[in-house]
Structures are given as C-alpha cells and as structure tokens.
Design a protein around this nucleic acid. Structure first.
Lengths: 457, 457
DNA sequence: ATACATACC
DNA sequence: TACTGGTATGTAT
DNA sequence: ATACATACC
DNA sequence: TACTGGTATGTAT
C-alpha cells in the first residue's frame, strides 16, 4: 500500500461520490454521469448531511476491515465446516423453491409525478419532480435525464436542472388514484398485497388456472385495465415468486412487462449476474459490505457463501443465499390474526432548522403529541410504549423510549412522557423531533369503534 | 356450581393426585393404581415439594381461567379470522410434510437399570431402580409394576415397594455402553442425532435406498446389532419424520418396534386419538392448559385450533397444529457452524438440606465455582455471562445473572461474581445453589486445545 | 425492554 | 438556505 | 440483557 | 429424613 500514487479521488473527489443518486440505470453517457456526480458533490460537500454520510461510509469500511480480520483468522478446518453449513442452507432453501405459482408485481411508473401530469398535462413536457426544495419524492422521466431522482433534495435537483418544476405533493389525490388501481388488482387476486401506494404483489395462480391464461396474458390485461381505469401506466414483473416478480417489474420500466420463465435454468441465468443491490432488502450498507468482500452479484454470493457464513449472521446468510438462488415467498403471508393489529406502531416527526431553545423544543413536542394523538384517535388505538426520536444538528439520531403500565392515547399523557424524556437530553441542538407509539391495542371504550382487534396471546 | 355435593376429592384426596408418576402406561388394574396414588399422596402431602407443586397447578388453573375470560370476549367476527389463521397455518404446515424419508428413533429400554442388570445379573429378578433415596433415574420393569418410575424420589419408591433395591448410578459405565450403541447407529446414518445417552434419531433414507431394504428391516437389524454389541434391548419407531418415529418407538416397548406407514391416511389415523402429552415438547403444564379447554388428543387440537389461536401464542399454535397433523422435521438440523460452539451453556448445581448461614452458603458458591471452572477448563472454554441459581427451602427458584465485558473461566472470577450476586439475596434459606456460564467461547490461549470454535457472526 | 441501524416507498 | 416522513424489521444488550 | 417457566433425559 | 442435575428453549420485559 505504501509508496503508491495518491488515489484519483484526491484529485477529483466527486468521482468517488457513488451515492444513492448516481448508481442507477443507463441512458446517460459517462460524461453526463461525471458531470452529475460533480454537481452533486459541489452542492453537498460542505453540509452536515454529507459529513454524516461520509462518516457512516467510513464506519462501514472499518466494519469491513474488522470482518476481514475475523475472516483471516478462520482456520481451514473451520472453513470446511462453513462450506458444509452453506450446503445445508442451500439444501433447505431449495426445499422452499416453488415453480408453479404465478406472481405478478405491479409497479406504477413514476407514480406521483404521473398523477400530477395527468391533472396538469402541461407538466408532461417539462422536467418536473414532486416534492419540495428539501426532498424529492418522484421525478418525471424528463427530469430523470438530468440526473434528478427520488430521495434527492430539491435544491440539488435544481442545480442539476435549473428549469426543474417542483410540484408540492398531494397525497390525498395519490391515494385516490391508488384505490383505482386496487380495484383492478382485486379482479386478479382478491388477497393481493400492497406495498405502498404505487405497487402491489398479486398471486395470479388461481386466476390463471380458472381462466386458462398465462401470466404474461394476465400482465397485459392488468396493464390495460389500469390504464383504462387510471389513465396511468404501470410496469409488471411475472415470475414464480414475489421477489423475482418484483425484480422483473423493473426490467422493462416504464410501461412494460417482463416474464421470467418458471424453470430452474432460466432462474439461475437470470440471477447469475444480478447485482446484489437488486435484491429487495439489500440496501446501500449491505451492498457496500458485500462489495468489500468482492461480492457484487448473486452469482458471487453463491460462490462466496462460505465467506458470508464466516462473517455474517446465520439469518443474513440464509437470506442472501435464498435470494441469490432466486427463491422467496411463493404464498401469501398470513394476515394478522384478530389477536393483532396490522399496524405495529404509529409515529409523527418533523424536521426544522436546527434549534436548541429548550422551551421551543418542548412546545414542539407538545404539538407533535397532539398530532399523534389525533391520528391514534382516528383509528381508535392506544399504545403502551412512547418513543421520542431526536436528530441532532449533525444528523446523529437518538431514540429514547419508555414502556408504561397501561396504554395511553390522550395528547396530555403522550406530551408529558415525551417531554420528560426530551428534558433528560438537554442541552441538545436538534433538526428533527418525533414521537412514536407502539405496543398498540384498540381502545375498548364506550362508543368508540375499534377498527382493530385486541392484543393477542 | 353452588349447592352441589362436595367433590369426591374432598373425601379421597389422593384420587386427585394425578401427578407425573401415575398417569402412564397400562398393566395395572385400577385397584393397584388407586393404591399407588394413595401411597404417593400419603408420602408427599406434608412436604414443601408437594405444596409448591399444588401451588403451581393452582396457578395454571388460574391461567386457564384468565384465558377462558379472554376467549369469552372474542367476537364472532374475530373468531372467523382465527379460523382463517388456522387454515393458513395448516396450509403452510402441510407444505412441510415429507412422506418419503425413513426415520428411526431408537430408545434403549430402561437403559441405566438394564446396564446394571447386565453387570450384576442378580438384579434381574428383583425390583430395582438406579438412583438414590432422593431421586430415581430409571426403574427396571419389575419395579415399575409396583408403580416405581423415573423422576420419583427413592423414598416414595421404597414405600411403594419396600424390597426395592436402589443402585447408585455409574454414569461412566452408561456412557461406555452408550458409545457401543452409537457404533451401531453410525452404520445406518453417519450423521445420526443423539438425544441423551439412551436414544437417537437416525435418518435411514439413504441406507434404505442404497441397500434396497425397508425401514422395518433396518429397525430389525439395528435391534439385532445393538443386542449383539451391548447385550441390551432397545425399541425402535419407524416413521417418515423425527417426531412420529419417537412416538412410535414407545408403542412396543420394551424390545419391540413399530412402523407407521408413510401415507397421510395412516398418519391421520395414528394421530387422531393420540393424547397431546405424547407430543414431544408438550409437558405437564401445556397438557393441563389444553385439557382445561377440553383438548385432550391431537384430533381435538385440530378441531379446536381456533381456540388455541385465540388463546395461545402464534408459535404455540403453529407447533401444536403441525405436531397434531403428524408433521415435523424430516431432515437433519444444521450442525452448529464453526461460528458457534455446539454447547450454549455449562452449569453445576447441588441440592442440600436447607441452609441459611451466609458464610456456609458463600463457601458453597466458592466450591461450585471451582467445580464449574474445572469443567470449563476441560473443554477449554470461557464464558461472558454468570448466572446464579437459588432454590429456596419452599422450592421457589430464583436466578440472577450478570454479563461481563470480557469472558472468564477461572474459579476466582466466577466465585467473586457469583458471591456478589448471592449476597444481594441475603437473607435466604436455600436448598439448592447453582452456577451457570453462558455466552461461551473457546479459550484461544497459548497451548490450550480449544475443542470448539470461535464465537460467530 | 431499550437503543440503534438498515431498508423500503 | 436547503438532505423527508412513516413503517417494519434486525441486532445487540 | 435479565428473569422466569417449561421441557427432556 | 427424604423430590436431582444438566441443558435448551420460549416468553416477557
């Protein structure tokens, strides 16, 4: 390592800024990409956000270093046993492989942005994003060509594309349109599982067999009906399990579909060079960790599973292995028993320009408590555990929680408890305050209409 | 409930004493059984043990009452959803049903007692039990006819059968004989799983297919070879999974075998009237709880699964349902990865006549610490967590634990920490003291030979 | 139970 | 000037 | 992590 | 006179 030339990053630091925003799809040549990286870097480099981000990446690298040390200490003998563990895991994963189910993952194209375009067609011809100067939810396809993406702050989007139109989100409207899509989904699978406003998983096995049609034909029908109903386009993935369907729905986006043939050879070929980051559940950090061990694709995961076994948790091994083999849930998950509410927590948080005045912060907690309490009332639920979330001005996150003896939902109780926890943290300079209630149960009160069920077991 | 005659138990209290000892096998007529119950009752009724036992049973009954209240509050609507949950659970359990594996559970007959008879044939003709006046491990079949059973204290055994010969256990010898049996088991399944000195689970699928013989034939061979090798008899259960094999090995005990045909009809018939207590994992308490809801057999579990869903934990539901359907593990469990030691804890405890002198108790902790440390040294392991176990003179059990920053194994450290925890409990009158170490890792020291592996993940 | 990290939309 | 808000889940203690 | 309960041999 | 000892696992907090 010593005596080498300084790495390129020291001279063109933005080239190393391979953040969330830049590691996606094709469609731009490398000059464009380079420019985009540079703009993002310049816009970010002095912010606390950027510092925190770098710190995290550094810590992950240190974690990689520690794991590598651990790996180095593994004896040959132990490694043999890790290989055996891997063989075991693969064998038991394979028992969960189901090829005979037809899953379709439907993903609305640039959903929020498309709804806005629908409601104001003039937006169709300009680069546009739904969100605020602080944060973008979705960008339309024109804006994406400038490098504007979701989860990017609006001010960076503006720097990438000064003409960018920022449209304030209108969630009520998106919900409406989402309900329209659901009417379509129900036709094909009354039990479809939705994953947010803009996507859903449908088990179309029964529909296909009853109507004697293929998954691909069903996907066509879904896309047609969704268009008819909502005037919006969506993309579909057709495969034999949820994960594969989800990955497939991204393949021919927008307004397309992709069918993965339900046979092992096709699945293995599909998965072989798939970047691990495509596995739902593998985010930036896990990707960085795996890359640190030279594991970039699902094929690499299989080849190096013994390394993963040596260095990660058994659950992580099993998850990565299963996913990389193209295996995942092929049946609908159990719906929550009446024992449980389907929701496990409810929360409310706000970001603001960093503040340290104690009274101001305490007042904000009070108002959060009222907001949260109102949300709880509207579902007739109460909760046992109060968690306060603080984000310091340097983006460090802290949580403090307290579990009570009996559940509460009134704003006064929530406020009192949250304030007490906040006070213990003073002095602090905060950019975010949040309150969350968990351990939820329906309110069994006089005339309330509990929409949920009594806490189970 | 009011105005009824006093229940029979008030007059003949021993009839209600349906404890561990009396609710087993046939072979005695009801007069005998009644006599046995009465003797046991008379021998027990004034002891602290008996009081604690009654207290626990009472608490379980209160728990049943509470669960029934909860059940009563379940609305029709909720109950419908519990039914749906059950349907879901059954569907997913059925996906785990494997009929094509051949499992054999081998259970040595009255193992310790039989070894003693082998070494001293004069014991064959008299009622005999291995154990002490305080506790019996195993009784031979002659003694069993008097009602003497394992887990019964020797003094009660003597009251049931004054001629009872009590033989002191010789574990080294049993281990030797157990190793002999294992040599046999390895022939049929090199990966067999042992469950204590006297039983094992063998997956004989491969052996059967390689040698073109049936499970029943293999069981014959196992029994012959075990007899040849050890001069001891054993019993075998042959079925398509571990649980069923285990239950089957009990069917024709001693010196017999039982084959359960691997088809759903046969399994359903087998399981229908099987008492829940036969399910390995369902002990006295769960049995009592289930009986409290009128659930006595596996058939009842299936019929009343919605009740179980409403009242027990999802895991318990799934376990009881799966078991009652005759489904269980059909493949060898993963062996511990080199990441882990196969052992998760190591402990040492002693019972004595109740003491409250603090110095005496502290000295006892010191000697336990030395014992434990020696056991750990012999395996070259150390541990992070120290747990002290106390049993008060009234049989109440208390545990206190502390997790350290770095692992220990030397007697001084263990003793120091355990004593500190004990002192906090003073004053107490104890009949048992124990120490356990967990969070184990191999000692990576100079010339030690770690038999295990470094702590994982 | 508490605290924190990761992930997804 | 300026990097969300809501939820679930995993991991460690 | 801590405490306690259940289960098995 | 007198009701074990060792281990794993689940549940709750």
């Amino acid at each position: 390592m010593e005596g080498e030339n300084p790495p390129i990053q020291d001279i063109q630091p933005w080239k190393a800024i391979d953040t969330v925003y830049t590691n996606e799809k094709a469609g731009m040549d490398s000059v464009d990409k380079d420019l985009i990286k540079r703009v993002i870097y310049e816009a970010s480099k002095d912010s606390n956000f950027f510092k925190k981000d770098e710190e995290k990446r550094k810590q992950t690298n240190e974690r990689i270093a520690r794991l590598k040390e651990k790996l180095a200490k593994v004896t040959e003998d132990e490694m043999k046993r890790y290989h055996a563990t891997v063989r075991d895991s693969i064998r038991s994963a394979e028992r969960e492989r189901h090829l005979s189910r037809i899953w379709i993952h439907v993903d609305m194209d640039a959903f929020f942005a498309s709804v806005e375009e629908l409601d104001d067609p003039s937006l169709k011809s300009v680069p546009m994003a739904v969100g605020s100067i602080g944060m973008i939810s979705t960008a339309n396809y024109i804006a994406r060509r400038f490098g504007v993406r979701s989860a990017m702050p609006g001010f960076i989007g503006k720097q990438l594309c000064p003409q960018l139109a920022l449209v304030k989100p209108n969630f009520r409207r998106y919900k409406e349109k989402s309900e329209e899509t659901k009417e379509v989904f129900r036709i094909f699978d009354p039990d479809f599982e939705s994953g947010g406003l803009d996507e859903a998983y449908l088990d179309c096995t029964a529909f296909a067999s009853v109507h004697g049609i293929s998954g691909e034909e069903i996907a066509e029908q879904i896309r047609n009906l969704v268009m008819e109903k909502t005037k919006l386009t969506c993309s579909c993935g057709v495969a034999c399990n949820k994960m594969l369907a989800k990955i497939c729905s991204d393949k021919n986006k927008p307004n397309g579909q992709f069918f993965l043939s339900p046979n092992i050879a096709a699945i293995k070929a599909f998965v072989k060079d798939l970047p691990v980051r495509k596995i739902p559940g593998v985010g930036c950090v896990t990707e960085q960790l795996l890359n640190g061990f030279g594991i970039n694709t699902c094929g690499d995961v299989i080849k190096n599973a013994h390394v993963i076994a040596a260095v990660f948790t058994p659950l992580t091994l099993s998850f990565l292995l299963t996913s990389s083999l193209g295996i995942s849930t092929a049946f609908h998950g159990k719906k929550p028993a009446p024992g449980e509410l389907s929701r496990k927590g409810i929360s409310c948080e706000h970001t603001f320009t960093a503040k340290e005045d104690e009274n101001t912060l305490l007042q904000m907690v009070g108002s959060l408590a009222h907001e949260l309490s109102a949300a709880m009332a509207s579902e007739s639920i109460e909760g046992l555990t109060v968690t306060v979330k603080l984000k310091l001005s340097d983006f460090t996150v802290r949580t403090r929680s307290l579990t009570l003896l009996s559940p509460i939902s009134d704003p006064e109780s929530i406020s009192r408890i949250a304030s007490k926890m906040l006070r213990k943290e003073f002095p602090v300079k905060l950019r975010l305050l949040g309150i969350r209630m968990s351990g939820l149960s329906p309110i069994a009160n006089a005339n309330g209409k509990p929409k949920g069920n009594s806490k189970g077991s």
